[in-house]
């Protein structure tokens, strides 16, 4: 059983926590030892949210090592860029093409890097970088809150294996009245990954 390290990075309120909970349970469902570490103390106040999720035969540290992440999912472009030190050549990066400017940018005291700059930095390190318009897909589905589950759909395609375990966990962890919407969102993510 090969180890798989994930980092999910975003901004408070983007659904990063739910997505990492789903990813953790999927790992357990697939028979891995699993650990997850999160920093979310300030998340509700527009700060950065980071989740490390690790699958493996036996996982010790809940934290992913620098230069060791297999899958980086950036729920926001700038936050994807922040984890570049954790990437290696064969990492897969999935970036939501979505921009939430930090306060310093709004005040004109800092510059939000251009999309091309973030892309080129990520590509210098990791060969596989995928951009997804998850916010747009989510809005088309009628609820921007499902962007995270769309990104999980994309991720599941890249991780490989059957999507049944993923869908089962998604349906278990989202509120009953949003099950169908999240199922659609997950499948839309898988579809986006294949195009």
């Amino acid at each position: 059983m090969k180890k798989i390290d994930f980092i999910l990075a975003g901004v408070g309120g983007q659904g990063t926590i739910l997505a990492s909970n789903i990813l953790t349970e999927v790992g357990l469902e697939l028979g891995y030892d699993v650990k997850k570490a999160e920093v979310l103390g300030m998340a509700q106040r527009g700060g950065t949210v980071e989740s490390h999720v690790r699958w493996g035969e036996k996982v010790y540290s809940p934290l992913v090592e620098e230069g060791e992440v297999d899958f980086l999912v950036g729920f926001e472009m700038l936050e994807a860029g922040r984890w570049s030190l954790y990437l290696k050549k064969d990492s897969t990066v999935i970036v939501n093409r979505y921009r939430i400017p930090p306060p310093a940018v709004n005040l004109g005291k800092a510059v939000y890097p251009k999309e091309e700059e973030i892309e080129s930095m990520l590509k210098t390190i990791a060969e596989q970088v995928f951009w997804v318009d998850a916010m747009k897909i989510a809005q088309d589905l009628g609820n921007p809150a499902v962007a995270g589950v769309i990104l999980l759909g994309v991720l599941s395609s890249r991780v490989g294996g059957s999507s049944d375990a993923w869908l089962k966990v998604v349906e278990r962890l989202v509120p009953a009245k949003f099950q169908e919407l999240n199922r659609k969102a997950f499948l839309a993510g898988q579809e986006a990954a294949s195009t």
Binding site: R45, G81, P103, V111, P113, M121, T124
Partner: peptide, 14 residues
């Protein structure tokens, strides 16, 4: 090297 190539503005809680 690559990470040092661009400056990423911090995102403090607010």
């Amino acid at each position: 090297d690559a990470s040092a190539s661009i400056e990423l503005p911090i995102r403090p809680p607010m």
